[in-house]
Amino acid sequence: MAMNGTITTWFKDKGFGFIKDENGDNRYFHVIKVANPDLIKKDAAVTFEPTTNNKGLSAYAVKVVPL
């Protein structure tokens, strides 16, 4: 089920960042999981599918909501 969130941290040079989800949890995401990576920036609103990996909470099918 899709969730909403906000990008809180973005490491462009490393290709990953973190999203604060609607429950207040931080989720890892990688640029290859983003549909529109050219719009990635700190504080951008996103929708995504929540999941977990071996390191904890993460996100896939991430879409940055255009302003």
Rank of each mutant, 00 (worst) to 15 (best):
I19G: 00
T52N: 10
M3H: 06
I40K: 00
N4L: 10
E49Y: 15
F16W: 11
N53F: 07
T8K: 10
F48C: 02
H30W: 06
I40E: 00
D38T: 11
F48P: 00
D38I: 09
W10M: 03
M1R: 13
N4C: 13
D38L: 10
F16G: 01
T8M: 10
G5V: 02
P37R: 08
V64N: 01
E22W: 07
A61W: 09
K33H: 15
E49I: 15
T8E: 10
V65G: 06
P37A: 07
F18C: 07
Y60P: 02
F29M: 02
F16I: 05
G24Y: 03
N4M: 12
V31H: 08
A61R: 11
T51F: 13
N4I: 09
T6E: 05
F29T: 01
A61K: 12
T8P: 02
D25Y: 08
V64K: 00
V34S: 05
K14V: 06
I7Q: 00
D38P: 07
I32E: 14
V34R: 03
A45L: 12
Y60G: 13
A35K: 14
A35F: 14
D43R: 11
P37F: 04
G17E: 01
L67Y: 13
L57R: 06
M3S: 05
G5S: 01
M1N: 13
N23P: 00
N53L: 08
A44W: 04
A44P: 00
W10R: 00
A61V: 06
M3I: 07
W10F: 11
W10E: 01
D13L: 10
D13G: 08
H30Y: 08
N53H: 09
M3N: 04
T9E: 11
A59G: 04
T9Y: 13
T51R: 13
G56S: 06
A44T: 05
N4S: 11
R27S: 02
M3C: 07
N4F: 11
N23T: 05
P66L: 12
F16R: 02
A45V: 11
F11R: 05
N53E: 07
T8H: 09
K33I: 12
N36M: 05
F29H: 00
F11A: 03
L67M: 13
D43S: 10
R27Y: 11
K20R: 13
K20F: 11
N4E: 08
G5H: 01
F48A: 00
D38F: 08
Y60N: 15
P37K: 07
N53R: 10
H30A: 08
K55H: 14
T6V: 14
K20I: 09
E22F: 06
H30Q: 09
V65K: 10
M1E: 10
H30N: 12
D13I: 09
D43Y: 14
N54G: 12
V65P: 02
D25P: 01
T47E: 08
N36K: 05
N54A: 14
N23Y: 11
K55C: 13
N23S: 06
D13V: 09
F18W: 10
A2C: 13
K55N: 10
I7F: 01
A59P: 01
N23D: 05
F11P: 02
I32A: 15
K14Y: 10
N23M: 10
A44D: 03
L57M: 07
M3V: 06
V62I: 14
T8I: 12
A59S: 06
G15T: 03
D25Q: 09
T9D: 11
V64S: 02
P66I: 13
E22G: 05
I40C: 07
K55Y: 15
V62Q: 01
T6R: 13
P66S: 13
S58H: 06
N4P: 05
D25G: 07
A59T: 06
K41V: 10
N53A: 08
D25H: 09
D43T: 07
I32T: 15
I40L: 13
F16Y: 14
D21S: 03
M3K: 07
N53I: 07
D43K: 09
P66T: 14
Y60D: 15
P66K: 11
V64G: 02
G17Y: 02
G24I: 01
I32Q: 15
I19L: 08
V34M: 04
T6N: 08
D25W: 06
V34G: 04
G15P: 01
D25K: 08
L57Y: 06
K33W: 15
K55P: 03
K42N: 06
N36L: 05
G15S: 07
K63N: 10
T9M: 14
K14T: 05
T6G: 02
K63T: 13
T9C: 14
F29Q: 00
P50S: 04
D13Y: 10
T47Y: 06
G24T: 03
G17D: 00
Y60H: 15
L57D: 04
T47Q: 09
T47G: 02
L57S: 04
A59Y: 03
D38G: 12
V34A: 06
M1Q: 11
F18A: 02
L57P: 07
T51G: 11
V64P: 03
R27Q: 01
V46S: 02
G56C: 09
V65C: 11
A35V: 15
L39S: 08
G5E: 00
K42Y: 06
N53D: 09
K55G: 09
I7C: 03
T9A: 15
N36F: 06
G15R: 07
D13S: 12
S58E: 10
T9N: 12
S58I: 08
G15Y: 05
S58F: 08
N26K: 13
K63C: 11
K33Y: 15
T47C: 09
T9W: 13
S58K: 04
K14Q: 09
L57F: 06
L67I: 12
F29E: 00
T51I: 14
R27W: 10
E22T: 09
T52R: 13
A44F: 05
